[in-house]
Amino acid sequence: MRRSTRVKKYIQTSGEVSDFSKLPLHKKFSIPDLLYVGYGLLIVFLVLVSYVLGAFNLLPNDPQQINMDMLMAPPGTGGHLLGTDFMGRDIQSRLILGIQAYFLPGLLAIFISLSIGIVLGVLAGYRGGYAETVITYFTNLVDSFPRLVLILLVIAAFKPDIYYIMMVMGITGVPAVANAIAGKIRVLAQKNFIEAAIALGLRTRVIILKHILWYNCRALLIIQATLGMGEAILLETSLSYLGFGVQEPTPSWGNMVQSGANYFMQGNFWPSTAPALAILFTILGFNLLGDGLNNMLEGKRSR
């Protein structure tokens, strides 16, 4: 069996479809998996709620209201449940609004890596030959850049816009998806799955869309998507440290941690800790959701 030489997140390139679905429910899902997915779904739910609250401006306080008399107030003062930031703005409201910064751009990044990744993966896996060589070169090329440096170059060249950042992130995520799908197709081909499908007279389009992508790759794609969101948040945070993340006055968790961290050493922990915890719980949620889903859908009994 040929193995993909690259690590594609944790996605199995050699995953197999088992008779897993015939197991009774209580054996199917282990308790940790259910907890993981439960927690992950809770976080996803909270993120969605925050997104809606932010989009309709249903916030406890005006997130842009500057209060020069109340800079970096501790939690609980003056009706600010989570305190205020370096401009006296309400941290709680900004945290809720901050999810806006990631939601659509993050989805864009995921969409780019999945759509291009799927096309390239199918081309490389199904067609093989010349296409495969070119695609392998491309994926290797993208993988050869330190991602942060590449993004820094791009935003310096264009502008520090979260959509640009996420577009580059999406492109750097393409190789992972492409290689995973190509690997999966190779495994299926090895098991004469595709030959059988062709022998049955199925059209290529149906084989690819329905039998390969839908039946065999959906778990992989869902997991890739959940992980993408977490990565988007962390990446924006790193860029914020360098000054190139989402720009004020638009709140993002990353620029909140960054601006708060300037006062960290003076003992003002809260303004950076609040958004850092938000990042922590959210990414944990996405990671665990991905983990749990992987265990359930792919039938891996790892614990």
Binding site: V257, Q258, A276, L280, I283, L288
Partner: peptide, 23 residues
């Protein structure tokens, strides 16, 4: 035993690295 350990690993991975540096 394995669960809290895994959790710990996940927690570290979810922290912004510069903030961790400041801490």
């Amino acid at each position: 035993i394995s669960w809290p350990l895994t959790m710990l690993g996940y927690v570290f991975s979810a922290l912004p690295v510069f903030w961790l540096g400041y801490i």
